[in-house]
Nucleic acid binder design. Sequence first.
DNA 1: CTGTTAGCGCCTTCAC
DNA 2: GTGAAGGCGCTAACAG
Lengths: 341, 341
Amino acid sequence: MVTIQDIANKAQVSAMTVSRVITGSAPEKVSAATRARVLKIAEELGYTPNIAARALRAKCSFLFGLVVSGIDHSFTASIVEGIQEVAMSKDYSCLLYITRGNTELEIRSLEALVAKQADGIIWVPNKQIPVCIPKLSQRVKIVQLLNKEVDHLPAVLVDQVRGQYLATSYLTQLGHRYIGYVMKNDRHSRERLIGHRQALADAGIYSSPVINLENDWSGQVDAIRLFLTENPQITAIAASTDMLAWCAIQAAGHLGRRIPDDLSITGFDNIELATQVIPALTSVDQPKKNLGQVAMQVLTRYIQGEEVEDVTMQTQLVVRNTTANNGSRSVALRPGPAADR
Amino acid sequence: MVTIQDIANKAQVSAMTVSRVITGSAPEKVSAATRARVLKIAEELGYTPNIAARALRAKCSFLFGLVVSGIDHSFTASIVEGIQEVAMSKDYSCLLYITRGNTELEIRSLEALVAKQADGIIWVPNKQIPVCIPKLSQRVKIVQLLNKEVDHLPAVLVDQVRGQYLATSYLTQLGHRYIGYVMKNDRHSRERLIGHRQALADAGIYSSPVINLENDWSGQVDAIRLFLTENPQITAIAASTDMLAWCAIQAAGHLGRRIPDDLSITGFDNIELATQVIPALTSVDQPKKNLGQVAMQVLTRYIQGEEVEDVTMQTQLVVRNTTANNGSRSVALRPGPAADR
DNA sequence: CTGTTAGCGCCTTCAC
DNA sequence: GTGAAGGCGCTAACAG
């Protein structure tokens, strides 16, 4: 371990001078010659600052925590990437805690982070809000990501309602009038349903079949198949997640309905799978990487004691191959998008 | 921030006594009464040890890094879970670095970890080995996970060859004689090919069509479809990953071949997707969580200066619904697995 | 421009 | 059983 003192000895200057060079603070207080010499020796000796000492002195650990339920389907991976990028540039390191949706584990993770003296936490809340949050939030700065579950803590969010509005509007513009909504029963899916209904209303459509699926996997495809059979007039499905959209693709396949000719499908999240399924999925893209970047920026500002406000980010519709005009096989015969049926 | 001194003042004892109680070292050196009192006050004050100070003193950061190319398809998630579990029990925190397969980023991550004084690193190497590894490995303890790319560093591995041997053997036991191997061109897939060939050889089969796919997604399904068309005698496919197996399912679907009746398929990795596709995928399970646990155990022993050796872990075949006897529709007519054709 | 002093919170060492 | 001293590596604050 090479210390500042070592450099000071070799360079024949005081430790303080070395410190000034290393940290780059108050550059006017050290001559160019000294600076060069110190830098050279630091390089030679392979000096790396001791963050523990620094943290002790600065009363700031340069550590923050990321508490997420899981890192599946490349969604969180992109977020982490964004976080990482900003964190690196600010000399912050990311402590990762995965909770698997387990509230018990979530609490332990948050507490561990306090114990570890993390300066802040980026937290993707689960359904259940741990009761300890108010207590913990006095000791660390917590930024909520994706879900705003606790009122007085800042949050970085995505406008789910508007996102689904984009997707469903696109379907109505393609001339679809009977659009089924396939959802599971979680917070985002419910928010998206609101956007779905807004889009329908704006297109003058006031009813739409909805199927609300349980959260486990078994039988989802079958359930959607039944849903399609019972609602034969459906020409398009808006799914509240890409995974559900994928189930819908499979269900349609079993019924012999071709996509997008016989049935249009939209997803939400734009996960990697969306490009890997065949046909590639039209989906609402969440700005994942950007989300991570913004969250980290908000967190650092929050840590520094600045006032921070909630940020809501927007989505984008990515059109791929699962959507087509209603009755697309005869689309060439029609002059433009059907205004009515 | 509550310090040991604060507790000492309030408890009317020396800081040293408090320290002894808190750390639990040399318990015989403090009376039960004092201990109880100190503990009570620590609790009241909400004391949490300052790890920065501890790290400074102990010359040990209690931090380790995890450097992975990505966290996709729940594979790494389980590994991280295992790592986390052991790490928590040993008071270690995990710094996560995601490299996206980018060697540049990988180097920066490893160097950042050295700069951050991480005690050790669990590293899942990419194809290209950063040249800086030998230099870095003098300053941190590095354990390789999944790939052994650097000879003199310990590794925690999975027996890929044996894993594929299990899958292909199962297919031969089901009476399949024409088994296509679908792979991409990476290290694990190549190792698995060896196991595949061993299993075939042990069943007296000495040739098998192999298709080696590029690493991007576009056209994989089509490529497999072509492969199946050009090798019509194939009754089973051993895919070197679950994702490829999934592509094979899609390709088979396009050709109107029913699974498992007309075509058996095995995957490898047993990712979450394997249970979500229809039909559910027969796959070789990698002991993901266990892998993480073992890696972390090896790392802590390594950090403590113990001699550590490579660990190779075994896989398990998980039979689901994509595999059936060759000619399964008439299987009831046959007395047992076909010994020859 | 440069140097000295002091202390962040913890715990090993030695003395009582 | 208990306590006092000292230092890990770093850097504000204050002299010169």
